[in-house]
């Protein structure tokens, strides 16, 4: 009861402030409206590149502000969308060539835009090195994600591991909704074929990651 009264009085107080024109933080809906406008007025872009600014449903859910938590229903939706996004390569083979994968994993380029033009490359890099430790002894590696050193040595190269690894790279949010790892296949940064090469780099016993 007491609580209720308090709520009522503070509601009056807030209303009073607004009537008096006192400056205060805007509510969530207003903030969103203003900020979204800033996004679309803050960049120069072609029709094609506009999609980089538009959030898909998962990105909307995964943009929680501050300490706000994902609800269970939201997490479940992100996982469901992720599962539905997975495409396997035409060949059906999930494990490609580790040497190609090695190069891709160490390549941080691709898809960046300057003066309206995308950097011209034969293909995009896979960006793994930016965030993960790879083969033992490599120094120039990031730590935004956990080390992948010894990945295949620890987990083996069974079909189940190949599938998990492929899906994880294709859409990381299938196993960890809204994690900091990009959904590299689902956003089309990488092709299914490229991902099979990176899978090989992670799980092939010959790969330097497992030496």
């Amino acid at each position: 009861m007491k609580n209720n009264n308090w709520l009522k009085w503070s509601a009056y107080a807030v209303a009073g402030l607004i009537v008096a024109g006192c400056a205060t933080y805007p509510d969530q809906a207003t903030t969103k409206q203003m900020a979204e406008k800033m996004v679309f007025e803050g960049f120069t872009y072609s029709a094609e590149h506009k999609s980089r600014l538009v959030q898909d449903r998962s990105q909307q859910i995964c943009s929680k502000i501050g300490d706000e938590k994902l609800t269970q229903a939201e997490a479940a939706e992100v996982v469901k969308l992720a599962r539905a996004s997975i495409k396997f390569p035409a060949s059906g083979k999930l494990v490609g060539d580790w040497k190609t994968g090695d190069k891709l994993a160490h390549n941080g380029a691709g898809d960046r835009i300057r003066n309206g033009k995308e950097e011209s490359r034969k293909e995009n890099g896979a960006l793994c090195q930016n965030c993960h430790a790879l083969a033992p002894g490599e120094i120039n590696v990031g730590n935004v994600g956990p080390p992948l050193t010894g990945y295949g040595k620890q987990r083996g190269n069974s079909e189940a591991i190949a599938k998990y690894t492929y899906e994880k790279i294709y859409n990381a949010w299938m196993y960890f909704p809204c994690s900091n790892m990009p959904r590299l296949g689902a956003t089309e940064h990488l092709t299914p074929e490229q991902i099979t090469h990176v899978v090989a780099f992670l799980i092939d016993p010959q790969s330097p990651i497992n030496k």
Binding site: R52, L53, Q55, C62, S63, D111, L127, R183, T187, E188
Partner: peptide, 12 residues
């Protein structure tokens, strides 16, 4: 603050 947390694009 909203923009700091706003994810979009190829790399989320």
């Amino acid at each position: 603050e909203y923009l700091f947390y706003r994810r979009s694009g190829q790399t989320d």
